[in-house]
Design a binder for these strands. Structure first.
Lengths: 109, 109
DNA sequence: ACATAAAGCAACCAAAAAGTTGCATAACGG
DNA sequence: CCGTTATGCAACTTTTTGGTTGCTTTATGT
């Protein structure tokens, strides 16, 4: 089976493409949007766009919901939070180290 | 010439791989580290690791500095901040929308 | 019922990424 | 000077990604 939990690397990978990032931005401004709506003005064919959206789905950055003959795409804010928290944690570790170094240089006799 | 500004998609793409994310994590805990030090225990050859590090360099997530016969790899905290800020902005947009929707549903006559 | 709109599915292709091996080079330590 | 350590460079293979085209299926509105 496919891994089911949220994977940070997978989320970043999903965000790591201009077209997909554009899609996520559009969704953050207005979501849900239908697949068709979302596939326009991206510079690629509908099926090309669909594939990119699928990458976002696999990383659980967005989710799909069928509604009649069209499909709604919704942003999953939780994955964004996971991505941001992970970076924040890296930054915290880094800052701690800098602080420790600073203390050491200043000397705390 | 190559684009020189910090590109969000490029940063996410760089972080979007388990090996590279591992490298960044190691660096956030202890940086600088030498290339050789960083290349161990990753499950790939030294040259394989070196290529991954180069991806991080290109995205300006880390930077290199030669020191005698070895090369130090340092985390660039600014790129992490850019990545985090971008996500934070998406979240803010999303939250605004949710708030607007909530206000509308509740009615503000 | 039927034309159309929204989307799915599959095959295919080119380019990029991930990794390897082999060999070269430059700096240190004794 | 010489062996060793840290790294670079290049060629090559395999897999993944990004994108296309063509055709099919399923709802919807009139």
């Amino acid at each position: 089976m496919q891994p089911n939990h949220l994977n940070e690397a997978a989320i970043y990978r999903a965000l790591g493409d201009p077209i997909r990032l554009e899609i996520v931005q559009r969704l953050s401004a207005k979501s849900p949007r239908t697949l068709g709506e979302l596939s326009g003005k991206l510079g690629v064919s509908r099926q090309g766009a669909r594939k990119q959206i699928q990458v976002l789905v696999n990383a659980k950055v967005v989710q799909l919901a069928q509604r009649g003959r069209q499909t709604d795409v919704t942003l999953n804010p939780y994955s964004l939070q996971v991505a941001r928290d992970f970076i924040a944690q890296l930054e915290r570790q880094w800052d701690q180290r800098l602080q420790a170094l600073k203390n050491f240089v200043e000397g705390e006799s």
